[in-house]
Nucleic acid binder design. Structure first.
Length: 267
DNA sequence: CACGAGACCTGTTCGC
DNA sequence: TGCGAACAGGTCTCGT
């Protein structure tokens, strides 16, 4: 489920449950979920670490401990759940952190794409990420200038986390529709006005996603309801909310892509 | 540099 | 009903 708004929702939910608690022990149920270090070193060093803060950078959760950072990327199917100790682990749990408050954090991940890094230097993992779209460094001026430096199809570029951090397949389609831009348009062809519209769309769509606690689809449900407000994503065959034209589905960069052929002209 | 294909995984849904 | 194909919110690596 996890793009920027979903990860932000998870962070806000688990932060009060974690801060101030101590990790008593860890169970690694799927060895490859841990990117670094070795399972042995991790279990040894994480024990006794107190949680200082829980934040988000791009689609990563950043759990700041006394001496380390625990970075978690949920990829396609990852989720974080806090459970009472008396409640047992579930089928898709990959990592458990037992806490001092008689609860435990479960990193659950059906498809096993998610990864966890345990490190003193979070910068080494996060170094290549582009700007946070909801922070002050991200402006229409920055966007226009940087779109112009490249010659790439808009959708793959917006999905590129080294360009902008946090957009995924859903929110990219929603942003492009709101900005009336075609996913295959070339980045260096945008006018300043179009770049401004795109900047505005990115910020407003992400804020709306956060306000609605993210989108909940399929078997992963966290109480978000943004899926009820999709303009184009997963709406192929439906009517464009702006003009009534039938929404089309195409494939761009091997990702399902949804556009209104009238609002989003390629030309 | 830009782009497409394939890989990594499990589960659900769709077409025949 | 059964069964294989297609598809799923992400990212990495390789070849052209």
């Amino acid at each position: 489920m996890p793009e920027l708004p979903e990860v932000e929702t998870i962070v806000r939910g688990i932060r009060p449950e974690l801060i101030g608690n101590t990790i008593l022990s860890a169970d690694l149920l799927w060895a490859r979920a841990l990117a670094t270090p070795s399972a042995k070193q991790f279990k040894q060093q994480v024990q006794g670490q107190k949680v200082k803060d829980v934040t988000r950078r791009a689609k990563y959760l950043d759990i700041a401990l006394k001496d380390f950072h625990l970075l978690i990327h949920l990829r396609m199917s990852g989720d974080i759940i806090i459970r009472q100790s008396k409640t047992g682990p579930e089928k898709h749990d990959r990592l458990l952190l037992h806490l001092s408050n008689r609860k435990y954090l479960a990193f659950s991940d059906t498809r096993k794409f998610g990864r966890v890094w345990f490190t003193k230097d979070p910068g080494s993992v996060l170094a290549r990420l582009g700007p946070e779209p909801l922070e002050s460094g991200f402006t229409s001026k920055w966007l226009f200038e940087n779109l112009r430096k490249r010659k790439r199809q808009l959708k793959p570029l917006l999905l590129d986390q080294t360009f902008i951090a946090g957009l995924g397949n859903i929110y990219t389609d929603e942003c492009l529709h709101m900005a009336k831009l075609h996913p295959l348009a070339l980045s260096n062809d945008l006018s300043q006005k179009q770049a401004e519209a795109l900047c505005e769309a990115i910020q407003s769509v992400l804020k709306e996603g956060i306000r609605r606690n993210g989108a909940s689809i399929d078997w992963v449900y966290r109480g978000g309801d943004y899926q009820n407000y999709f303009r184009v994503y997963d709406r192929a065959g439906g009517a464009c909310l702006a003009c009534g034209t039938e929404i089309q589905r195409l494939t761009v960069g091997q990702r399902g892509t949804h556009v209104c052929p009238k609002c989003q002209r390629l030309r």
